[in-house]
Design a protein around this nucleic acid. Sequence first.
DNA 1: TTGCTCCTCACGTCACGTGAGGTGGC
DNA 2: TTGCTCCTCACGTCACGTGAGGTGGC
Lengths: 201, 201
Amino acid sequence: VADPTSHDTRAPVLPASAVSGDVGALAEHCYLTTGDMARLSKSTLRTVRFYDEEGILRPVERTDGGHRLFEHSELARLLLVIDLRAAGLSLGDIKALLDLKRGAPTGGDAARIATRVLAERVEELDEKLAVLSRLRSDLLQTAEVVAGCRTCAGHEFFPTDCDRCSIVASHERPPRALCVLWSVGSKRDKADGSARIEERE
Amino acid sequence: VADPTSHDTRAPVLPASAVSGDVGALAEHCYLTTGDMARLSKSTLRTVRFYDEEGILRPVERTDGGHRLFEHSELARLLLVIDLRAAGLSLGDIKALLDLKRGAPTGGDAARIATRVLAERVEELDEKLAVLSRLRSDLLQTAEVVAGCRTCAGHEFFPTDCDRCSIVASHERPPRALCVLWSVGSKRDKADGSARIEERE
DNA sequence: TTGCTCCTCACGTCACGTGAGGTGGC
DNA sequence: TTGCTCCTCACGTCACGTGAGGTGGC
């Protein structure tokens, strides 16, 4: 379980040489390494390298030893990409967003396309936020009901007939997670045929 | 681009035979097919089958021809799984949630574990909601600024020096997407060496 | 009998994870 | 010289997508 991005306490953004007053040296040293990018974005070395291979990030240069060096603006780019990925966009969609301006002939064209695409993405985000908010309240309501079961010990209804228990069944609109997790309104875990009628004959 | 879950208008939940008053026949027919599950959950046949293979869904029975038949409670389960996936949980995490109750010796044990796990999931959801909300407002602010560029035609600053344009650069705390997408504060797309100093020597 | 639905392999894909084995730089 | 960081293959994994070729059921 070794963490390749373990959060040590060194400060990669402004190394010691940067405060020496040597501006030329600072211009050389203020680039970010792959590890800096990974740590500062809380992602991984592999992800930074992968995004480089995919043309999503681009190091300004390489050292003689082949080490990637990134400008600080590439960190902002990486952070945006990570958030867009968390929002569910594919790397293809993200590249399309990032390359939007490059493909347009004039600023006006770029702006019109960008406002349309951004509006679409915001709408998708609204849908996603709605789904996750409902899920959140569903899980929260479920937790509240289930909290009432903490004193349940060797009860006759547990585990297959909890829907017959007054603690759990008294809610007229039970959250979905309660139905699924606590077998409320489900025959899934009951004894074979106990809830079936067509077996007798 | 054929859609295997094309939304036709038939009603799989209550087929014609169900309203005939024949309760025995209804008990047979009110099961859901794989296609019903896919349509009603807006997922795909493959996903339903995959979740069956993975032990996340379970058909009550199979027809002689091998067709899966699901109880309605399995649809609620599928809908929950889909939302949990959208929230970023792995199928392993989801199985753990679904099997929580089955593994506990008493109702009290199950309830204590469940409240803890649910609280964790809610907290994760809060973090995810915070990230997506910030992203949403960032994209929205970016769209507002970029909307001001729609009248830009053949401008001297486009496309590499938009950060020198007063329309775009006047914001003291520009949204991150604006910096990344519109090259505000980035040297990425500028002419080679134009923003570099160490080239001369 | 004709469509439409469902079935099982089985290979492909996307976005990385995870070593193996080697080099770089303060 | 010693660690720690970074490098490049290259195979693995997770959650499905995508045909190929065949059967089922009203």
